[in-house]
Design a protein around this nucleic acid. Structure first.
Length: 249
DNA sequence: CTCCAGGTACCTT
DNA sequence: AAGGTACATGGA
């Protein structure tokens, strides 16, 4: 099984904000139990009883080799794949993903992580109904606080459950109705929360790389991504994001 | 002090 | 349909 756990867990995806790194292992609480994941001799291990959830989180059923064959048609992508070989897209809880990326705007990863951690109860992000009426002044969310609480209100009506049953385009339109959710955050939630691998979040880093293919704006970037990578666009995005960040593109 | 950080909402052309 | 700006907060 091809996977690099560190690249996967520490690449700005939701686990980067919701999981803890300790002694070379990763852990979080779920349902009052400690869920631990680690890698030895290439193989992924997890706390007994979490095998199915681990498989889902790390998308171990994705055929990474096949995805690479689709992506590695040019030098930039080949470089990214060589550098971050084994990086996988993760599949996370939609509500937690929505919270992470509403908070992500105009913040860096350490700060996003702090804000997310401040919203946790028993190791899980507080559910919509709680968050909607909780006083979040001590959480230092800045202007994102209103977005979050209004989105929590909307989510508390089962909206995310319904979105989960929609096709990609419809789900995207529905997510854009949430306060504080624009194109970038919507695509992150579609990719990391709902598992749509065709989603292509365009942030400042990805946009910088996409200029190499002639993209002048976000619309261009999406069009190019869809043409070149189709249902693998989400994977392409994650590799380009990591490459841009480490190379300072 | 200024600039920037996995953007969005809102206001002008 | 594009382009510009304010927005809280904290670290460099």
């Amino acid at each position: 099984m091809l996977i690099n756990l560190r690249h996967t867990m520490e690449s700005g995806q939701p686990p980067h904000f919701t999981w803890n790194s300790e002694n070379g292992r990763y852990w979080r609480m779920l349902g009052g139990r400690k869920w631990e994941i680690w890698q030895e001799n290439g193989r992924v291990h997890c706390t007994h009883g979490f095998e199915k959830r681990t498989r889902e989180l790390l998308r171990l059923d994705d055929d990474l080799k096949k995805i690479y064959r689709r992506l590695c048609t040019d030098a930039i992508m080949r470089e990214a794949i060589a550098k971050f070989r084994g990086l996988r897209i993760t599949r996370n809880d939609p509500w937690e993903t929505l919270v992470c990326f509403i908070l992500s705007q105009n913040a860096n990863i350490p700060r996003i992580r702090r804000m997310v951690q401040s919203l946790m109860i028993n190791g899980e992000i507080a559910p919509p109904k709680i968050l909607a009426r909780k006083n979040l002044a001590v959480c230092k969310l800045g202007y994102r606080c209103d977005y979050l609480q209004q989105s929590a209100e909307l989510a508390s009506r089962g909206t995310l459950k319904r979105i989960g049953r929609m096709p990609y385009e419809e789900a995207r339109a529905a997510l854009l109705q949430f306060p504080g959710v624009g194109p970038k955050v919507a695509d992150c939630v579609l990719l990391f929360g709902f598992g749509f691998l065709e989603a292509f979040p365009v942030d400042v880093w990805v946009m910088r790389v996409m200029r190499r293919w002639g993209a002048k704006n976000e619309r261009d970037a999406h069009e190019i991504a869809k043409d070149r990578w189709g249902k693998c666009a989400g994977y392409a995005q994650q590799y380009l994001y990591m490459l841009a960040r480490t190379k300072g593109i």
